[in-house]
Amino acid sequence: MIDTVALDPDRHVPGVRRHPRAADTLHAEWLKFWSVRSTGWSTAMLFVLGAGLTTLVCATSAAWLASGEADESPASFITWGLFFAQITALALGTLIVTSEYGTGMIRATLSATPRRGAVLAAKAVVLTGTLFVAGVVTAFAGYLGGNWFLDREGIGIALTDDGVLRSMLGSGLYLAGLGLFAMAIGLLVRHTAAALSIGLALVFVVGNMAFLLPGTWGEWVAKLLPGNAGSGVATPVPFNPELLAPWTGFAVFTAEVAALLLTGWLVFRHRDA
């Protein structure tokens, strides 16, 4: 008669705690996120594109902005690089889901943590945490770099000026939201190229073309599209005067992301992996 191996799942944890918790799922997702090269590269790209392009555009436009001919506010330029940082936020958000489907990793993930809601929550926290911090740091770096050139022309912007601090914080919030938006698309589509194309098209192509729609109806569609609604919070003074007010727009954006994410979760919850 052979003894059966004890079925106590805690036998290897020397008296510390009973069960793995949400914190363990989060830790696993964090390790997963940072142990592939694409994450480091993407985050570095986000910083370089975001802060670098803001500095560059301020350096080249400072003289024009200081002259009487300028028809834009210098404050519109201080988070200018964010436009490109959106690409990396979309890429990171897409990949956190589609790379798992593309490689079959999803099966390892769901065998380790069968509670799918917990997996999604952990992914969302890791993604938004990273993008928020990266977004805020990038926006500040862009501000410091760009403002140095604006200052030399006597049109420097103070952090205390209207909307400047809000736009720094807003950059982090918007990028985090955009990451979740892409993650939700990834959940629905599962293929990297397809999901990324949809995300980029919605934000960059459809978002801009919608302003060409006629009438007040068209105007509202354009205002409410995710990229247009959400990005207002990330600039002190938007280039486009037709956008919703910053926090109103962000609230609309948040609702849209939440709805898409909920749909993604409902599909993901019962799907065969």
Binding site: H12, V13, R17, H19, P20, D24, T25, H27, A28, E29, L31, K32, S35, V36, R37, S38, S99, E100, T103, G104, M105, I106, R107, A108, S111, A112, T113
Partner: peptide, 29 residues
């Protein structure tokens, strides 16, 4: 413990890192 048919690995991750996140997820030392 299961070994399934299809590979469930990300090609860009090292073997040790693959085991690390799995261990972390289930409180395995």
């Amino acid at each position: 413990g299961a070994l399934l048919e299809a590979r469930a690995l990300h090609p860009g991750r090292t073997a040790r890192n693959h085991l690390r996140w799995l261990a972390a997820s289930n409180g395995i030392p």
